[in-house]
Design a protein around this nucleic acid. Structure first.
Lengths: 220, 220
DNA sequence: ACAAAAGTGTTGTTCCTACACCCATGA
DNA sequence: TCATGGGTGTAGGAACAACACTTTTGT
């Protein structure tokens, strides 16, 4: 059965989001080889024959950013026969959310440069990566609305207004402070962690996310 | 680049749902070849080198059921290196919703039998297909709750109580008739199509789904 | 007349939205 | 004392859940 079919190549591509400078940003790499040499692209690479898709995604993520143990989720599999001019390449795309303070950009073998771009300001990108990115953004917003993924972008202890800023950035829209706090606190997913006295104004309450929170809960 | 990497095989598997005998049912095929010969499995097959994933899924769907133009959606890509004992096989799974009156089961080359099973009564199945099926069910419920996919299981013209029965089957739970009708009608997605006089009781209003309905709308 | 399914309204509760002021601290 | 962000309550409206009887038709 192995020999009967001509096989496609399989890659993983990872849309890596972070929050930087009050913006939602995505990591793109400048391609060092053809095709699309010197164009920006979503980072990714071939799946090895003995690693799972998620392992491949984690490996690529670490090669690009140096981070481990971040939020990583499979997005969609793109497999149009013409999406790669070199031949049949099916790509399994992933979303990752990384804390911008943890990252450590490295140039890997087929990448001459890597850079963050605000999602509102994406350059022309290689292959069908624009479509992948649009899909990723849609999914990200959905995840923010209905799950607790957002908290993976915050330090272990955080204030209500840090959460609110995150949501305001992702949805590009302001929320009422009182209603937002009421909503988040009513979900019963936060634990009080004491007061942060290291600020030069009224000291805020710090919270952490309770463990054992289920997946889907409807945040907004 | 084609020769540097040993390539996995890529298949599509399609979880085909229908409503039959007041039950949500799934089509399984009995495998005619090893591995798992004579076990039930989700229908699927290899992706040809020059067809897209969706084309492959449509082709398999038609081979199994004879139907075209049904609801079809990519579900998830399963790629654990050990999921197929023959070697590395990555499978892109799909969900299809078919109207049981349209179907016409055929036995294809590597299938000696195909049969509908109620989702509450699934036998032991091959590979990691149990996991795929669980995932499909979760997604199906979500889609029913938030989108208009359910209508693809009904004829063009239908009554409110047909919709309600569909939802009651999928969620395995009864809804209040008045509240259900109120909710569905308030969504403004139905068009009145006149009264069905071919019943032996008070004749019901027939509706059709308006075209140009957006994807996600929150039904329940 | 009866059986079968269609159709329809109200009330109490909960959730959502809009909106403005005082508080605690460091400089 | 001032600047900075933190923290808090209420009222009106919308959506939701619970609940039962009458209507139209065929037999």
């Amino acid at each position: 059965m192995q020999e009967k079919h001509e096989k496609p190549s399989v890659t993983v591509d990872i849309v890596i989001f972070t929050i930087k400078e009050n913006n939602l940003q995505v990591l793109l790499v400048k391609r060092g080889i053809e095709p699309f040499k010197n164009q920006w692209a979503i980072p990714g690479g071939f799946v090895k024959i003995d690693e799972s898709l998620e392992e491949a995604a984690k490996r690529e993520l670490q090669e690009e950013t140096g981070v481990k143990d971040v939020y990583l989720e499979q997005l969609y599999t793109f497999g149009s026969p013409k999406r790669d001019p070199r031949g049949r390449v099916i790509t399994v795309s992933y979303i990752a959310l990384v804390n911008s303070s943890d990252i450590n950009l490295k140039a890997s073998t087929d990448v001459s440069d890597a850079q963050w771009f605000a999602v509102s300001d994406i350059p022309i990108i290689a292959f069908d990566h624009k479509e992948i990115l649009q899909y990723a953004l849609k999914r990200l917003k959905w995840k923010f609305e209905y799950t607790t993924v957002a908290f993976s972008l915050l330090p272990k202890e955080f204030t209500i207004s840090q959460i609110q800023k995150l949501y305001e950035i992702v949805f590009n829209k302001e929320f009422d402070k009182r209603n937002f706090a009421k909503k988040i606190l009513s979900l019963n997913i936060l634990k009080e962690e004491g007061i942060n006295h290291e600020v030069s104004h009224r000291p805020p309450m710090l919270y952490s996310l309770k463990n054992n929170i289920g997946e889907i809960i409807e945040i907004l």
